[in-house]
Design a binder for these strands. Structure first.
Lengths: 252, 252
DNA sequence: CGCAATATTGACCACTCTCAATGAGGGTGG
DNA sequence: CCACCCTCATTGAGAGTGGTCAATATTGCG
């Protein structure tokens, strides 16, 4: 994720100024003064460092968070130290939406590299959205999007083999970087192989082997955390291999 | 899911009258007259029959739906007839929340047995929630809950083996039936083995074998769609086997 | 009653995991 | 600045879970 090496800091600054607003207002439907109101309740905090927690499982839910720069992983910890990585969050993306329901966080959020975060007190946001229908609408959309993304992951874990999962993961990252103005074919992974494997339901060794294979096949270059996607078309092709299910016929 | 055979129809009627309201208002924070307003925008439709679609992938998103009686599966179809089952929806549960984001449905919803549905036009609901803060809050909670449930599934698919998945599935159903006033240990599956397998990321044959094994171990009785859970404790125990991940140490 | 869809069961095999050893960076302290 | 250590990543060999293929019930439905 950038930042690891010194990569176009200007770019990051430009892309991520007011990231919280970008995330909440895009696609934009808010009036200028509504944006100001929203801006007023956002807290900017000092940067966090690798390993810091934004919040932990079971913490009281007070705010949602937007990544400004850097990256965050969310994960469900279990007593014995094991965990399930639930997601990686890049600049502009929201964290904590799963905690609204019962007022406490369902997962932990840990910073993967030096990261700047905006905190948006949910109570204020909720109040504000009561008075600004377009903000309410935007909130519904953001929550809905989260559901859609999780459903995509369900699909990935339910139907895809190791190769397809990693290809989808890399192309997904690529898209998200692109959307935020970073290179879509040359980036740094801020998460370890282990975390990738955990996220994708695969063993570390499988991830490692796949990287080696993909590189051998000329699909990408990988050196540690540095990834260069060379043939995105072919990566796409890997994912697109539809599985025949044989279950339900097409309606004749 | 009940209904298959003639099981306590009275029970169903009692439990499911105004299911849409139950779903939206529980845990209840709405005033009586607000409930009436909500009630006023709900459309009750004639019952649907096995195989009917509530909506299809890419359909324009107009309403969310609440199951009153019966059951529905949502799934992401692919061109070749394959699919990924995303969820099974029992009385009182919502369908369609993932479609808010871009105004069209992300998945298809198909009725598994004779099923009664409430339709709630989303535009009206949104408008109403603008004027009733507690309804807005409830909407946020419902959307958030959906995210939490999907995250649970991610955990299941990422970390659990076949046995654990089926055990979790059955206990999950059991809980949901219980909450709605049905038996938690004796029920009918409205979905096929194939659909269960698809949902859990397993092959039909695996599901079949596991049922046989579970029955042999005295955990349950199964005859086709009829399930009797005999030893829920032991089923719980199957799920609780935490996986050592060995990744991140516990902070010393 | 007979066909089609659904389930069950068995045999075999492959993908991915596990275990184990080695290598490569990155950070710390001397 | 280098040595050392610790974590992370890579690679190999072997094993096991679950998938695939195929044959046989069983059920439901027209």
């Amino acid at each position: 994720m950038s930042g690891q090496k010194n990569i176009s800091l200007e770019n990051i600054k430009i892309a991520c100024r007011n990231c919280s607003l970008v995330a909440l207002c895009l696609p934009m439907e808010l009036e200028a003064d509504d944006i100001e109101k929203l801006d007023a309740i956002v807290k900017r905090s000092r940067p966090l460092h690798r390993g810091d927690h934004l919040f932990r499982d079971d913490d009281k839910f007070l705010s949602i968070y937007v990544v400004k720069t850097g990256s965050v992983k969310t994960y469900a910890p279990s007593e014995d130290g094991g965990e399930q990585v639930l997601g990686f969050h890049l600049p502009g993306e929201l964290i904590g939406l799963d905690a609204i329901e019962d007022g406490s966080h369902q997962c932990s959020a840990k910073v993967l590299e030096t990261t700047a975060i905006c905190e948006i007190p949910f109570y204020h946001l909720e109040e504000l959205s009561s008075n600004i229908p377009s903000l309410q609408h935007q909130m519904y959309r953001l929550l809905s999007r989260e559901i859609g993304q999780d459903e995509n992951m369900l699909m990935l874990l339910g139907k895809r083999n190791a190769e397809e999962r990693l290809a989808a993961f890399l192309l997904g990252l690529s898209d998200r970087f692109k959307r935020r103005g970073f290179s879509s074919s040359d980036f740094y992974l801020s998460m370890s192989r282990h975390e990738i494997g955990n996220y994708l339901g695969l063993a570390v060794e499988t991830i490692s082997r796949l990287f080696t294979r993909f590189q051998g096949d000329g699909l990408l270059n990988v050196k540690r955390k540095h990834i260069q996607l060379l043939q995105k078309k072919r990566l796409q092709a890997i994912i697109l291999q539809e599985k025949i299910d044989g279950n339900e016929r097409q309606y004749p």
